[in-house]
Amino acid sequence: MENHKHHIVEYLTNLYVWVGLAVLTIVTIWVSEFDLKMLTVAVALGVATVKAVLVLMYFMHLKFDSKILTVMVIVTLIVFLSMIVFTFFDYTFRA
């Protein structure tokens, strides 16, 4: 069951993604020069998330594979985030 043909990604697409990742890395370093106060971590994590999504979609072929794999990754992320959120929820309200 569920045998899929492997999608071959063009070299040019991979190159664009690689350039995108490199640019985002430069953005991360550049942004760190500014004092964004509370947003410092959020911005760094936001850029890192965009980079992770690019890697997942193109280098790990989620964009071209069965949608069920995307669902699996999303569910996994929800579970992982929930673990962190619930734990910190306790810490936030602790006397």
């Binding site: 569910v75 579970v79 929930s82 673990m83 619930f86 929820f89 306790d90 810490y91 936030t92 309200f93 602790r94 006397a95």
Partner: peptide
């Protein structure tokens, strides 16, 4: 399996966990 990930706090009701967290769990 899914909901089971979010109920672990009920083992800790008397362990000093915060009140709101206890209610949620």
């Amino acid at each position: 399996a899914f909901i089971g990930y979010f109920v672990w706090g009920h083992h800790m009701f008397t362990s000093g966990m915060s009140g709101p967290a206890r209610i949620i769990f």
